[in-house]
Computed example of a mutant assay.
Amino acid sequence: MMVFNVHFDVEDMEGKTVLVFLKPQNPQRDYDIHAWRVLTGSAGATERFSYEDRIETDLSSTGNAPDEQIISARVAVQPGQLLQTVSPAGLSPRLQPAPTSLAQEKLTPQQCGVINQTNPFIQFTCNWYVGGHPVVSMPKVDLNMTVSFEMVPGQFYFMVASPPLAGQTYIVQNFSDMTQYVAPITATEVDVNLTRPGGLWTFEFSAS
C-alpha cells in the first residue's frame, strides 16, 4: 500500500478540486475515464489517501426501459484472470470465472479480462475499479468480445479542475493536460505539494 499526503499550499483554491487519475494500458478513444480520487481540501489543508492495487469489475446494462440501468455485483479479479458474463434465464448479466485455458488464450499474465458470453445476447459496459474507486468504463461490449484491463504500475496523474458532476467522466486525451507522477517501486509514502507560482497550478512530489 502507498499513502499520499496532498498539501494544499495555496492561498485560495478558487472553488477547484484536485483530481487524481490512474491510467489503463493502451486506453481506447471511446473509454470513459473516471477521476479515481476527488480531493476537496481547502487552502492550507492536507488531504491523505491511499493506493492499493486491488482490482474489481462490474457491468452496467440497460433494463427493459431505456432509462433503467442494471449494475451487476462487483467481483474481485486478479491479473491473468478472465471472467465470463452470463445471463441466466435471460436475466441481467452477471460475472463468473472463465476456464483457465480461455484466459491464457485471451489475456497476458498482466491483464484482467471480461468476455461477453450472454445468451440471449446483452450488450454492456464493463467498469473497472482499483482500491474500491472507479478508474475506467469500457462501453458497448458485444457478444464474444473480450475487454482487458491492465494498470500502468506506479503511475498517477494529477490535475486541478472544477469539482466533477455526478457521473462525469473524462476522455483519454485529457491525460495530456495532467501532471504525471511515477512512484519509485520502494515508495510507501508520497508527499504532494500543490502551489501556484505565477498563477500556474504546480505539483511537486517527494517519496519516502
Rank of each mutant, 00 (worst) to 15 (best):
Glu150Phe: 00
Thr62Gln: 14
Asp191Cys: 02
Arg37Leu: 10
Asp58Gln: 11
Gln111Cys: 00
Met145Thr: 12
Val190Gly: 01
Ser176Gly: 03
Pro134His: 09
Leu22Ser: 07
Tyr157Pro: 05
Asn193Ile: 12
Pro120Asp: 06
Leu59Phe: 13
Gln111Asn: 02
Ala73Arg: 08
Ala65Met: 15
Phe156Thr: 01
Gln155Asn: 05
Met151Ile: 10
Leu82Gly: 10
Pro109Gly: 00
Tyr181Phe: 15
Pro97Leu: 02
Gly113Phe: 05
Ala103Gln: 00
Asn174Glu: 11
Ala35Gly: 07
Ile185Met: 13
Leu102Asn: 03
Met151Phe: 05
Ile115Pro: 03
Leu83Val: 01
Pro109Asp: 00
Phe49Met: 06
Arg196Gln: 12
Glu105Gly: 08
Pro197Phe: 03
Glu105Val: 09
Ser162Asn: 15
Asn174Met: 12
Arg54Glu: 14
Asp32Ser: 13
Pro139Ile: 05
Ser101His: 08
Gly90Asp: 05
Thr146Val: 13
Gln69Asn: 09
Leu22Asn: 10
Leu165Ala: 15
Tyr181Cys: 06
Arg74Thr: 15
Val18Glu: 05
Val136Tyr: 05
Thr46Gly: 01
Ala183Pro: 06
Ser42Met: 02
Met2Val: 14
Gln28Glu: 15
Glu150Asp: 00
Pro24Ile: 04
Ile71Met: 13
Leu143Gln: 13
Val77Asn: 02
Glu105His: 10
Val86Gly: 11
Val136Gly: 00
Asp58Trp: 00
Gln28Pro: 00
Glu68Lys: 10
Asp191Gly: 12
Pro99Thr: 03
Asp9Arg: 07
Gln25His: 14
Gly80Asn: 03
Ser87Val: 02
Glu189Ser: 13
Leu39Phe: 14
Thr125Pro: 01
Arg48Phe: 08
Met2Ala: 05
Ser176Lys: 04
Gly44Arg: 06
